[in-house]
Design a binder for these strands. Structure first.
Length: 844
RNA sequence: GCCCUCGUGGUGAAAUUGGUAGACACAAAGGACUUAAAAUCCUUGCCGCUUGCGGAGUGCCAGUUCGAGUCUGGCCGAGGGCACCA
């Protein structure tokens, strides 16, 4: 029997799809559209197993939807700006553009070898100027809409490399590359006003029924809506300060007020500029780092001022005002009212500085003498020691009533606050989209006029000099606008901006006048199914949602608020980890197995210890190169294996045994195909099509349902079951038409999973018309079924019987059954529960 | 600390949503074919007497029900997210 030559056959089909432009799409209003999108990759030069999984999942869906008759948009592109290119360029003395473009070529070939149903005519790359020109236009459009602004903000500053670092690039307070201690520095930065849409972004989540709940919860927490009250505290001081505004969610605990704390960046700090002690304190605060996480571990410290804050509900009470390191300037008003008894953070601070801890809430089960001692009480209960507020139920009634009283007395106002901060998009790097702005000598910004766009990145730059490379390009920096000599903005945009709108560009990849055309997005948007890693649950997905809101804002032409109708987040690809006796990581191909034990291949005296399976990473050396897998076993085997065993949303374990068994399975399917062709040629005359027909219908039902639910692992199980059924059943002398008709449907249902193999078999059978085979519910019915027999809820056997057997007949059958009759004996039947066509439970 | 998700064989997992627990696969052990090996195929899988049969069994404890992996309450454990957010 001829072996299945995957190399030849896969190559043949891939060439065919390419030359026929099988997956190229255009608008066709007679058809329903389906936009299937996977998160586009960063062009590192090599695909990894994560890509294989992500793109296989998407491809299965896209191919299924094509067969169902949808007009499917399934594009691919490159998230090609970003630091790795700069680093690689610096190391290899290359230019980032050359490096990136050659990587794209390499990766594209690898992706094509997977046999994906991609419309490559729509390929885009974010680092090419015909992409980023539109991004610059969007930037200016948002600037006009006042959704972009410039402000001074604190950043992580690496004083050696002279650049801003992202939070994740600061390790133990030091720059990841230079090792220098990171400073907190105030810089002028561009911001997108994402917080303006806080409420919209929150409301939008409610409409996203096809998103994982987990992601919605994460975004909800990130947006962080809280309900409370703003309160003006009167101040007694010899400084020209007479009030401080605070935000609080617990105005009901105002009678427990014992201090007021300010951020060191609060405007009042200006009065302390010349105080050396305050300066020292501020230094101390900045040492605790800029990341919120670093702040969290740090001890609470304060700087006492001579200011006194007056309790608005009890004007005779005056409390000290502190600067404190735990107060954030960009949340609320940078000022906090402290109630130590009912807030753990305030409690810790009060303990340290010996401030009063006055209990004003008691739990329901305690009496009025209840006292907070070791930790703050934050639960529910009743207000005590609170004058006219006493007895109110905490928290709901007490908060609402207190706000009402404060409003009536004009001491405060109901207020909703969001945790979501504006998005700082300035990056002091070369390999990104230039910000289309120039400044005059006074530092006033001017937009670059439309006809001067794109602002292209200069080429042949020196990346080895310290600091921002664009800042060192004096010839590039100078620009004349309307006869005015200006200096360009030398920061580039965060690469997350590029990926915030690429899904729109795929709809109109060649459009010149704007980032996309209205006709195109009217037809294609929103993305019906977006597929990618859960690590983008917040940033990328929230930024993209914001971008859609921002483009639709004050826009009469279109109003799309949510870019991704459905979201699916796939799990990671894991592999066992290995270490040699010297505790070094060892990669799978350096290992040889002898008698079930693993040794180092080139030194078999060294025994390898097997560690837990972890997500593939270069640092642990537990990666498997997809290219090797495809070369050795073929794309269909790789696709089959990456989908098998684990549900797509969970992590999957890669194993050598697993891929081999997938490979063998395809060989078996091929042998079976040969047998079936043989049987077809024999053209038996027996007309017993029942079993095959029912099985095929059941199979199609299962496959269809599992495709709809992303239960791709179950589809693989269905295929194995199918194989074992067919390999027995096929010898049952079916007529030619019966065999072809059923087998054809089975093969078509396989094409989304193993497209090369299934298409090849269909071609041999000369099947031209390939549509998704609908199953027929009426043909699923079996006439003889098994009924479960239970006595007192315990399963005691099965009875084969006709469909719709009555309870009476069934009990008669049980009485005739040797094995079952002994349970009945001569006992009385107290009760029977009969679930028709399924089960009978006899209580005795 | 707060929020979310999940606990089923040696392993990855199924179970028509309250109705046959462990489909399908990996690994292991035994067997068949073979001079032998590889490949392939079959069987087994917890505890008892041993063809068969009976019992226990879905993290633990209780509850609802004729019937619970599935529903309810409590406990234990794992993973993920957020974290001085006032």
């Amino acid at each position: 029997m001829e072996r299945y030559n995957f190399k030849l056959i896969e190559n043949k089909w891939q060439k065919l799809w390419e030359s026929n432009k099988t997956f190229a799409t255009t608008i066709d209003k007679s058809k329903k559209k389906f936009y299937c999108l996977e998160m586009f990759p960063y062009p590192s030069g090599k695909i990894h197993m994560g890509h294989v999984r992500n793109y296989t999942i998407g491809d299965v869906l896209a191919r299924y939807k094509i067969l169902q008759g949808y007009n499917v948009l399934h594009p691919m592109g490159w998230d090609s700006f970003g630091m790795p290119a700069e680093n690689a360029a610096r190391q290899n003395n290359l230019d980032p553009k050359t490096w990136t473009e050659s990587n794209i070529q390499k990766m594209k070939l690898q992706l094509k070898k997977l046999g994906l149903s991609i419309d490559w005519d729509r390929e885009i790359s974010t680092c090419s100027d015909d992409y980023y020109i539109h991004q610059q236009k969007f930037f200016l459009e948002l600037l006009k809409k006042k959704l972009v602004y410039r402000k001074e903000n604190y950043v992580n500053w690496d004083p050696v490399d002279k650049t801003v670092l992202a939070n994740e690039q600061v390790i133990d307070g030091k720059g990841w590359r230079s090792g220098a201690i990171v400073e907190r520095k105030k810089l002028n930065q561009w911001f997108f006003n994402i917080s303006k849409f806080s409420q919209n972004l929150l409301d939008g989540l409610e409409t996203l029924d096809n998103w994982p709940n987990k992601v919605k919860v994460m975004q909800k927490n990130w947006i962080g809506k809280s309900f409370g009250c703003e309160i003006d505290f009167k101040i007694e001081s010899d400084l020209p300060v007479n009030k401080i505004q605070c935000f609080t969610t617990r105005p009901d605990t105002l009678f427990g007020f014992s201090f007021l704390a300010l951020s060191v960046d609060h405007e009042i700090s200006n009065y302390f500029k010349d105080d050396p002690d305050f300066f020292k304190f501020k230094e101390e605060c900045s040492k605790t780092g800029t990341t919120e996480e670093a702040l969290a571990v740090g001890e609470k410290i304060g700087f006492k001022t001579k200011l006194k804050a007056i309790n608005p509900l009890n004007p005779s009470q005056k409390v000290p005002v502190y600067f404190a390191n735990f107060v954030l300037m960009d949340y609320g008003f940078g000022a906090v009212f402290g109630c130590p008894a009912h807030d753990q953070r305030d409690f810790d601070f009060a303990k340290k500085y010996n401030l009063e801890i006055k209990t004003v809430v008691k739990p329901d089960e305690e009496n009025e003498s209840f006292q907070v001692t070791n930790e703050a009480y934050t639960g529910s209960g009743k207000l005590i020691n609170s004058d006219f507020l006493n007895g109110l139920n905490v928290p709901d009634e007490s908060i609402i009533k207190t706000i009402k009283i404060l409003e009536e007395k004009k001491l405060g106002k109901k207020k909703i606050n969001f945790r979501l901060k504006d998005w700082g998009v300035s990056r002091q790097r070369y390999w990104g989209c230039p910000i289309p702005i120039a400044y005059d000598d006074a530092g006033n910004p001017y937009p670059i006029p439309d006809e001067m766009l794109p602002v292209k990145l200069p080429e042949n730059i020196d990346l080895n000099s310290k600091g921002n490379p664009l800042d060192n390009q004096s010839s590039w920096k100078e620009v004349q606008i309307n006869g005015k000599k200006l200096t360009r903005e030398t920061d580039t945009l965060d690469t997350f901006v590029c990926s915030s709108w690429y899904y729109l560009r795929f709809c109109s990849p060649k459009e010149k006048s704007y980032g996309f055309s209205k006709d195109d997005i009217d037809y294609w948007m929103p993305v019906d199914q977006y597929i990618g890693g859960v690590e983008h649950a917040i940033l990328h997905l929230l930024y993209s949602r914001f971008f859609m809101q921002a483009l639709s804002f004050e826009n009469t032409k279109f109003n799309i608020l949510e870019p991704f109708n459905g979201l699916f987040t796939q799990g990671m690809v894991c592999h066992e980890t290995y270490k040699d006796p010297d505790n070094n990581w060892v990669s799978p191909e350096e290992i040889e197995t002898i008698d079930g034990k693993k040794y180092l291949k080139n030194d078999k005296s060294k025994l390898i210890t097997v560690g837990p399976s972890e997500s593939m990473s270069k640092s642990k050396k537990n990666t498997i190169d997809p290219e090797d897998i495809i070369n050795n076993y073929g794309a269909d085997s790789a696709r089959l294996f990456i989908l098998s065993d684990s549900p797509p949303e969970k992590d999957v374990q890669w194993s050598e045994e697993g891929i081999i068994s997938s490979y063998k399975f395809i060989q078996k399917l091929w042998s079976l195909n040969t047998v079936i062709l043989d049987e077809i040629n024999k053209d038996h005359q027996k007309n017993n099509n029942e079993e095959l027909e029912i099985y095929t219908q059941k199979f199609l039902k299962k496959i269809t349902e599992n495709l709809e639910k992303f239960s791709y692992n179950k589809i693989i199980a269905n295929l194995y079951e199918l194989y074992s059924f067919l390999s027995k059943e096929i010898k049952n002398s079916y007529k030619k038409e019966v065999l072809i008709n059923n087998y054809k449907k089975i093969l078509i249902a396989m094409t989304p999973i193993i497209p090369h193999f299934a298409n090849e078999c269909l071609e041999i059978l000369e099947i031209k018309e390939i549509k998704w085979p609908e199953y027929d519910e009426s043909k699923l019915r079996e006439d003889i079924i098994n009924i479960v027999i239970q006595f007192n809820g315990k399963k005691r056997g099965l009875i084969k019987t006709e469909l719709n057997t009555t309870e009476k007949t069934l009990i008669e059958k049980i009485n005739k059954d040797e094995k079952l009759i002994k349970y009945l004996d001569d006992k009385n039947i107290k009760k029977t529960i009969y679930v028709k066509n399924k089960l009978i439970n006899i209580i005795i």
